[in-house]
Design a protein around this nucleic acid. Structure first.
Length: 231
DNA sequence: GTTGAGCGTT
């Protein structure tokens, strides 16, 4: 989901995507918005996050409306010091659906209603795209060993947790909680839970997290106790 | 609380 489009991501074919790399993990889209918006009309900004922790992966996607503005932003914002780190701005090479895009613009083979020429070549010349693509998608950092171990531990923990769930004790607790007749009689309705879930229209830039700066930029040291307590 | 090559919707 985009921060600028509540109705969904805007058409990427009409926008120029820029890839911003080397940004801090604390940098948000709102931090890049004023920087990129100054050099052109930013259509949308999206920063992929981790589904586990929810933190930024260290890069962002900025979409411009015009190519010249995007090029200018690349030339200007490339190497700009943001939050103490130089971010690298460059045109995106691949689209969200792994489409090949040039100069930030998708050059997908649009289904041109050219008559019978539509189904001429089923698939051909795509072998080059399949190679050299396995380097990524692994851990987001070179410390993947640590993450791999952590993930393994997490998996083990999850397995153990599930194993514990299947223990007679838990089973008994669960069996007591849910009645066999009730579980079948009553079915939860989505409206029951989400009733009154009013969307926040005032939520323009929900990425704004001033608390981040407050906690990070304001290393407020805890007030020392009245007396030195022995450790 | 950490890390740093890369390409996308929570």
């Amino acid at each position: 989901m985009s921060r600028f489009g509540r109705s969904g991501p805007p058409p990427i074919r009409d926008t120029y995507s820029l890839l911003v790399l080397n940004i801090t993990f604390r940098t948000t889209a709102d931090d890049l918005f004023p920087l990129f918006d100054k050099y052109g009309e930013v259509v949308d900004i999206y920063i992929p996050r981790d589904r586990r922790t929810g933190d930024s992966r260290g890069f962002a996607f900025v979409r411009y409306k015009y190519e010249d503005e995007a090029q200018k932003a690349v030339d200007r914002l490339d190497g700009r010091l943001v939050d103490g780190r130089e971010m690298m701005v460059q045109f995106a090479k691949y689209g969200p659906n792994a489409e090949r895009i040039q100069k930030g613009r998708i050059m997908e083979t649009v289904p041109k209603p050219r008559g019978r020429s539509r189904s001429r070549s089923p698939r051909r010349g795509y072998r080059d795209d399949h190679r050299g693509r396995d380097s990524r998608r692994r851990s987001r950092s070179r410390s993947g060993d640590r993450y791999g171990r952590d993930r393994y531990r997490e998996r083990d923990h999850h397995r153990r947790s599930r194993s514990r769930s299947t223990s007679p004790d838990d089973y008994k607790r669960r069996g007591r909680d849910r009645s066999p007749s009730r579980s079948r009689s009553r079915s939860y309705s989505p409206d029951d839970d989400r009733k009154g879930g009013r969307d926040s229209d005032a939520l323009y830039y929900c990425s704004l997290s001033p608390a981040r700066r407050s906690t990070s930029r304001s290393p407020r040291k805890t007030p020392p106790p009245r007396e030195g307590s022995p450790a």
